[in-house]
């Protein structure tokens, strides 16, 4: 019983930390976009502008949800890592595309990041625990 409580708390703590980290990443994305835009002579990239939505919607909110529900018991370490990797891929894609488009160039590499990120997220779901 003691062991079960300990594991549960550890899992809860992990998602607590995760949601705080993702919230920080969300804030960082907003600040990064603001600073980058300031030094870009008014050039704005939509990818960079809405980059903060990925850590917020795919990171912070699911983590906060898992903290408050028992569904977190089904999340394995591999699932957790791969989901985070998927989020990181989307954020990196937005940053790279933002840098390129802010320089006045056009690029079509964002789908590459989207595919990789989506694959990582789908794979992460395949590694969910079948039993809590």
């Amino acid at each position: 019983m003691t062991l079960f409580t300990s594991v549960t708390d550890k899992s809860k703590r992990r998602f607590c930390v995760s949601s705080v980290v993702y919230l920080s990443v969300t804030v960082f994305c907003i600040v990064f976009n603001a600073i980058y835009t300031y030094f870009s002579y008014g050039m704005v990239s939509n990818h960079m502008k809405y980059m903060f939505l990925f850590p917020l919607l795919l990171g912070c909110m699911p983590s906060a949800l898992l903290v408050s529900t028992k569904a977190r018991k089904y999340v394995s370490r591999i699932t957790f890592n791969m989901w985070n990797a998927g989020c990181a891929t989307f954020i990196t894609g937005c940053t790279v595309v933002g840098i390129i488009t802010n320089s006045g160039r056009s690029t079509d590499v964002f789908p590459i990041y989207c595919i990789i990120g989506a694959v990582m997220m789908i794979l992460s779901l395949l590694f969910l625990k079948k039993k809590a």
Binding site: N81, N84, A85, A88, T89, T92, T95, V96, I99, I100, S103, R105, T107, V109, I112
Partner: peptide
């Protein structure tokens, strides 16, 4: 984290070098 970060960095670096 380290393995995947290296992959992402190399991918992004190659795209940025190709663009610029």
């Amino acid at each position: 984290c380290i393995i995947y970060s290296i992959f992402l960095i190399l991918l992004s670096l190659s795209i940025i070098l190709d663009a610029f």
